[in-house]
Design a protein around this nucleic acid. Structure first.
Length: 575
RNA sequence: GCGUCUGUAGCUCAGUUGGAUAGAGCAACGGACUUCUAAUCCGUAGGCCGCAGGUUCGAAUCCUGCCAGACGCGCCA
């Protein structure tokens, strides 16, 4: 199947306008960029606003629109080209639209919208990256599902994506944990309570440390021992890490998220020395209050701390070491960091340091920030025990789904599997349905709502479409011929026009690193399809009509499944 | 104090990068299941697009200043 060659009305219109542009004083990109979708479908399907041309040609916009209308004339792709005031409106001719869009979708299947231009290029995506020895909670959801979705979107465009789980498996928090374990824990308790016990110890450390600040010194000393390779300290560190990884894995299994690399912070421990030497050799390091920093005054930023006064590294140091390592190892064309907006300054600082080191690829480092999750307006806090565990959220959603299935579709064959797909889908979609940057207040009620603009709504729509296909005995290999003229209901045409938009939406989502563009699109598609579903019976006596409508249903099913897949959500056949 | 981000219907959010009459969902109210799955659909109601200036043919969108909230600003990550 040929990707990269989807029906593109903007390109067609651009051609038409270029052809009648006698003075040849326009360029394709200008025209293409001007084209927009009219606010009211009664006006047309695409519009060329003539204000900007008016400046260029010193003529009133409405006159330009009229003139262009006359010059362009009839065209097989448009049923109407009409000047309305300063706009030149184009209406898609239904038959070619229907034939080409549905034809391409049936032809490409779940590759519809895919591209090849990323082939041979690698993108590394740093996402999820939880801290070891802390429970995996809803605050980690955004990074995990946004990163996962971006990886899928870019793969869809042909790129090879390396998903990296940059585990927080190094740092003073392990000193704290060992201190707490030594004082108040035991092997038996940890074996029994696993990460919950680790969290209990971690919380206890912080409440006790408020009364007795010397505990902090003890914690630092234990971390120093880890770094020095002390046998007991390292063994405990390793053990705590394993317990955490098993815990995280259960969540990743539920989400069906995998990584190509699990190299966490500890992995770079032996690589930071060289980075510090390089910074020194390039004359970037200066001493300030006993610490080693890179001064960024010239760029309006506070200095980037590289070494503490005791000589140990900081996270900027490790991030720089990791970036150098990743460039060398993967040769990426782009490196994405999906982390909270709170870290924006940190990324700006060390991106600038990499640039000052003379690496031109510093421009390929991209921070993908997202808003903060809070609980009833208060910050999440592991130390205060104020968190919602992600595993608990997922299993609760699955449980609720199972109850709904038992109530609405008790005869369903693989209930457990479907409940898992839908419950998890609800949670994932919830995290991907709004603009990344918005702060969110977690609410059980909203997270477990399955009606309206939700994941289950999309999955339900997909199941409905699947059901029709199944009942009709539709064959994807054989039954591809259809008469596009049969799909002339307004409701059907609306669906087809929305299907047409999919490839463009995927491109926008990638360019803006914004999975919610796809989420919003799928909601639009599902709404249009459900309108059609109520308006038009598919399984009818008229064989030709039924066949045409089946093709439309198959196309919607395909695009819904593809889009959900790009979000990391499953599309069950029945629910 | 300085910086970044956010502010659109009661609530949660879209708004095609400056274009035509600002759109959805939830909640409320009224309708549609012996029919391809009602986790659905149709309808009603709901707006000083935070406020005030400016830029221009044209602003929810760009600029400036306020107001409100979130986050960040040296040895945590």
């Amino acid at each position: 199947m040929r990707k990269n060659s989807y029906l593109d009305y903007k390109a067609i219109i651009t051609d038409l306008v270029m052809k009648v542009n006698e003075d040849a004083d326009l360029d394709r990109e200008t025209i293409y960029g001007l084209l927009e979708y009219p606010p009211d479908p009664n006006l047309g399907d695409l519009a060329l606003p003539c204000f900007k041309l008016s400046k260029k040609w010193r003529k009133a916009p409405h006159l330009i629109a009229e003139e262009l209308q006359g010059k362009i004339g009839p065209s097989p792709y448009f049923s109407e080209v009409k000047a309305t005031g300063p706009y030149l409106n184009f209406r898609f001719a239904p038959v070619p639209l229907t034939r080409e869009v549905l034809g391409q979708i049936l032809d490409c299947g779940e590759e519809y919208g895919a591209r090849t231009f990323g082939e041979g290029q690698k993108i590394v995506i740093d996402y999820s990256s939880p801290n070891i020895a802390k429970p995996f909670h809803v605050g980690h959801l955004s990074s995990t599902v946004i990163g996962n979705s971006l990886a899928k979107i870019y793969r869809f465009l042909g790129y090879e994506c390396v998903g990296i789980n940059h585990l927080g498996d190094w740092g003073t928090q392990f000193g704290k944990l060992i201190t707490a374990y030594k004082k108040w824990g035991s092997e038996a308790e940890v074996k029994k309570g696993l990460i919950n016990e680790l969290m209990r110890l971690y919380v206890k450390f912080h409440t006790e440390a408020e009364k007795d600040p010397s505990l902090e010194d003890e914690a630092r000393e234990w971390f120093r021992k880890i770094e020095a390779g002390d046998e007991e300290a390292l063994a405990l560190w390793q053990w705590f890490k394993e317990i955490s990884l098993e815990e995280f894995q259960r969540v990743y299994d539920l989400l069906e998220i995998t990584f190509q690399s699990q190299a966490g912070e500890s992995f770079y421990n032996d690589k930071i020395g060289a980075v510090v030497e390089e910074l020194k050799a390039k004359g970037l390091l200066t001493e300030s209050e006993g610490a080693a920093v890179v001064n960024l005054d010239a760029y309006g930023m506070p200095p980037c701390l590289i070494l503490k006064k005791d000589g140990s590294s900081l996270y900027a140091t490790r991030d720089i070491a990791a970036a150098l390592y990743r460039k060398k190892t993967y040769g990426f064309v782009k490196a994405l960091y999906v982390t909270g907006m709170a870290q924006s300054l940190h990324f700006q600082q060390w991106f600038k340091v990499v640039e000052l080191m003379g690496y031109e690829w510093a421009k390929d480092l991209v921070h993908i920030p997202f808003g903060l999750v809070s609980l009833k307006g208060e910050k999440l806090s592991t130390r205060k025990g104020r968190v919602v565990l992600l595993e608990e959220l997922l299993t609760t959603a699955i449980q609720k789904t199972l109850e709904i299935i038992n109530e609405k579709n008790p005869g369903l064959a693989n209930k457990e599997e479907v409940a898992r797909s839908v419950g998890v889908g609800a949670v994932v979609f919830g995290a991907l349905s709004v603009n990344r940057i918005k702060d969110v207040t977690f609410s059980w009620e909203e997270a477990l709502n399955f009606e309206g603009e939700t994941g289950p709504y999309l999955q339900y729509t997909h199941a409905r479409a699947s059901s029709i296909i199944r009942k009709a005995g539709f064959d994807y290999e054989a039954d591809l011929a259809f008469d596009p003229e049969k799909l002339d209901d307004p409701a059907a045409l609306k669906v087809i026009k929305t299907l047409y938009l999919f490839p463009e939406k995927v491109m926008t989502a990638a360019a803006e690193y914004e999975p919610s563009i796809i989420s919003r699109y799928l909601i639009d598609l599902a709404q249009d399809f459900n309108g059609f579903y109520h308006e038009c019976q598919v399984l009818v006596d008229d064989r030709k009509l039924q066949q045409a409508r089946l093709i439309l249903v198959a196309a919607v099913k395909t695009v819904l499944a593809t889009g959900l897949g790009l979000l990391g959500i499953k599309a069950p056949e029945q629910m």
